[in-house]
Design a protein around this nucleic acid. Structure first.
Lengths: 248, 248
DNA sequence: CCAAAAGTGTTGAAGTTACACCCATGC
DNA sequence: GCATGGGTGTAACTTCAACACTTTTGG
């Protein structure tokens, strides 16, 4: 029975994206606060990640890490690359941290990156969670991360953008009911550019992957918007027809 | 000095694509012919690959493998995924082969897949090369491969197709001078569908990433076609403008 | 009444598809 | 002279980009 032994050579790092109807966020682990008393540098963040188990598939490992961290499962995840620069963990601060959490801190580790899309409301980090201290940070406010994690984040973002062109995965970042304005903001946040409202709505409606609901917004200081939900059936129909153009 | 020690946990497998003006090919290693006397099954092929060195970046490793196998360097390569199913090497035949070539055949190995584009004329496998016995096989005639290599090949092909939509990497499969007919055949081979000749030519010419040469074909039993060459300067200009649509 | 986002059509330009015939060459 | 692939234009259709005003609500 070695199912639970760690494989000290291979890790998985997860880039969890979230959306608050304004900006695209990424979930980071604060590694400065509870280790390393003589880190007087400013707090440094890292992507959540872990070594894989000896007997565990990569996809499984990624889902385990996400589950352990957030309690969520059955979440959209996608591998976006492997990173194995032999010096990727060699900085002073990285080594110090590794010595505090790994039994073989010197070991070279190749990491596999996964990104996943999480409804931010489904996971609200608890301020004083004792095990990990996680926090949602707007992607465009991320500063220097541990290891090669800035590179991972860049790649993850690029991969997310590419994926969005061929599958409407963005819906994973929204609650079951959403307005077209919110959907548009999501696309704008991910692609970091403005989109024409009328053109956007026309395109989405033509695709037909969205169902109009009866319900409308309440308590907003403007004309209340209609809610929509993602039409999974219609989406799968489109896929079967070989359709795969969700460009906006 | 441990630069040359092998890392028994991580390997790289290379999917080398080639094009003979007719079909898309992939370079496979025949592992049945020189090991394993008691393999009376039919010959089985595998993708070329190797463990990485202890101190070696993944991209470096991929280039090393390609160089060792073909003598080629400075070749287009692109990572397309990591594969770590714990059972990926557990079949009878795979284990038998591993025992003959690895010092730790039981070790679990995660592999990183790279695909690369090679001018078939630049590498003609020698029939009796003693070290390896490699062979170009048309992609759509590939049968059962070792390990999870069929899966790798599928992924590589998908990744190649995707990449072709945003960068004109296909030129790496052609000689410096080529005809538009050959270029079209390349696109047809990779995407596995027919393309209208006139529309294809119009689109390519509009892009302007191809330069007309004076020279024409000779000795062909039909109207000789004009040669073209890839216009790298123009291509880089396009990239700077943010252009990235090479759909056909 | 003011601010804020919702909702709604038209037009011109660009891009895409489908389609058929003559040309130059080797054998 | 015939088989082979090279080379060429047009018309219908679809998609895309740009653009401005009225509506409904809360405060």
């Amino acid at each position: 029975m070695n199912g639970k032994r760690l494989n000290p050579h291979i890790s998985i790092d997860c880039v969890l994206f979230g959306f608050d109807f304004e900006k695209l966020h990424v979930l980071l682990i604060d590694r400065g606060r509870y280790h390393s008393d003589f880190l007087h540098e400013s707090i440094q963040y890292a992507l959540p990640g872990d070594l894989i188990y000896m007997v565990e598939d990569l996809d499984e490992g990624a889902m385990r890490i996400l589950k352990d961290l957030t309690g969520l499962h059955n979440i959209f995840m996608e591998q976006f690359g492997a990173f194995g620069n032999p010096n990727r963990m060699n900085s002073e601060a990285d080594q110090r941290w590794l010595r505090s959490i790994r039994s073989e801190p010197e070991e070279r580790v190749v990491t596999i990156g996964y990104f996943s899309l999480v409804k931010m409301t489904d996971y609200v980090p608890v301020a004083s969670s004792f095990a990990k201290s996680a926090v949602w940070v707007p992607v465009n406010e991320v500063t220097e991360l541990a290891f090669d994690h800035n590179e991972l984040l860049e790649k993850a973002l690029g991969s997310l953008r590419e994926h969005m062109q061929t599958r409407p995965i963005g819906f994973n970042l929204l609650p079951p009911k959403f307005t077209l304005g919110q959907l548009q903001k999501l696309y704008e946040a991910i692609h970091d550019r403005e989109i024409d409202k009328r053109n956007f709505r026309r395109k989405i409606m033509k695709l037909g992957i969205v169902k109009e609901l009866e319900e409308k917004q309440k308590g907003v200081a403007h004309k209340p918007a209609r809610f929509f939900s993602f039409d999974k059936g219609r989406y799968e129909e489109l896929l079967e027809e070989g359709f795969q153009n969700f460009k906006l």
